[in-house]
Simulated assay, not measured.
Amino acid sequence: MSDQDQTHFGYQQVPVAEKQERVRAVFDSVADRYDLMNDLMSFGIHRLWKRRLIELAGVRRGQRVLDLAAGTGDLSARFAGIVGASGQVVMSDINAAMLERGRERMDDAAVIGNIDYALANAEALPFASNSFDCVTIGFGLRNVTHKERALAEMQRILRPGGRGLVLEFSHPTQVPLQKAYDAYSFSVLPLLGRLVAKDPDSYKYLAESIRMHPDQESLRDMMEQAGFERCEFFNLTGGVVAIHRGVKL
């Protein structure tokens, strides 16, 4: 098997055809404890990161938003409140268990009825070109097998003037923080996974997938290659997380 037939799954090399199923199995396993684990892993700071993404998205009333890798719907719910009844939010995920958990959460919260749901692969989106004002992917791009395809699809479905945003774990900008972050990721995260989610292996994968994700400059270059203009990134928490933003002109 050639290198072109393989890709990374954390630190492992696996056949390209297997990665999607392996990622799906990870999120099937963690879906029920996903929100609790997010709060524990980030000490609740993920809510501030998502708030910053909302600010940078610049979404307005009446617009149409696609939230990829939506998980349990944190971003979708906030966008729904902003675009209002005259707008639309499409909450999308490749994982059926995560999407169902998100739908239940929206029902429980009685979110305004302007959310639709789509089980979709970010590499081949089932939407027309030039059909959304904003598309976001929060903590999902690192799990995509062919990131360049997903970015190109995000650019394709945007209307001219539309914005694409990627919220993702990234590379800390200071060496001391990087060392502390590594120690936390490979010691504490699997422990939390074992104690809370009863699944240390999935959280070991999540830590490894973060390390395999492109750094800030590389991801900005990938967005430019996908056709986005005015690409920029914003480091949060010392670069532990970054938000990348590009515009379709």
Rank of each mutant, 00 (worst) to 15 (best):
D3Y: 15
T7M: 01
F9W: 14
Y11M: 14
Q13P: 11
V14W: 14
V14C: 15
V26R: 13
S29L: 12
L40N: 09
H46S: 00
L53D: 05
L53T: 12
I54E: 12
E55C: 11
V59A: 13
A69Q: 06
A69L: 01
G71S: 06
D74V: 02
S76W: 04
A77R: 15
F79R: 11
A80F: 00
A80D: 07
A85H: 14
G87H: 08
M91D: 02
S92R: 09
L99S: 06
G102V: 11
A109W: 09
V111M: 12
D116W: 02
A118M: 13
L119H: 06
N121M: 03
A122P: 04
E123M: 03
A128H: 06
S131N: 01
D133E: 12
V135D: 02
T136C: 04
F139W: 01
R142T: 02
R142P: 03
T145E: 00
E148T: 04
R149P: 03
M154Q: 04
Q155N: 14
R156H: 01
R156T: 07
G162C: 04
L165A: 01
L165W: 05
V166S: 04
S170T: 10
Q174I: 11
L177K: 02
Q178W: 06
Q178K: 13
D182Y: 06
S185E: 05
S187A: 11
V188I: 12
L191Y: 03
L192V: 10
L192G: 01
R194K: 14
R194Y: 07
R194S: 14
R194G: 11
A197D: 04
S202C: 03
S202N: 02
S202M: 03
K204N: 09
L206H: 14
A207Y: 12
S209F: 07
R211P: 08
L219D: 13
A226I: 14
E229F: 00
E232A: 11
E232W: 10
F233S: 05
F233D: 03
N235Y: 00
N235A: 06
G239W: 12
V240P: 00
V241T: 11
K248R: 12
L249Y: 13
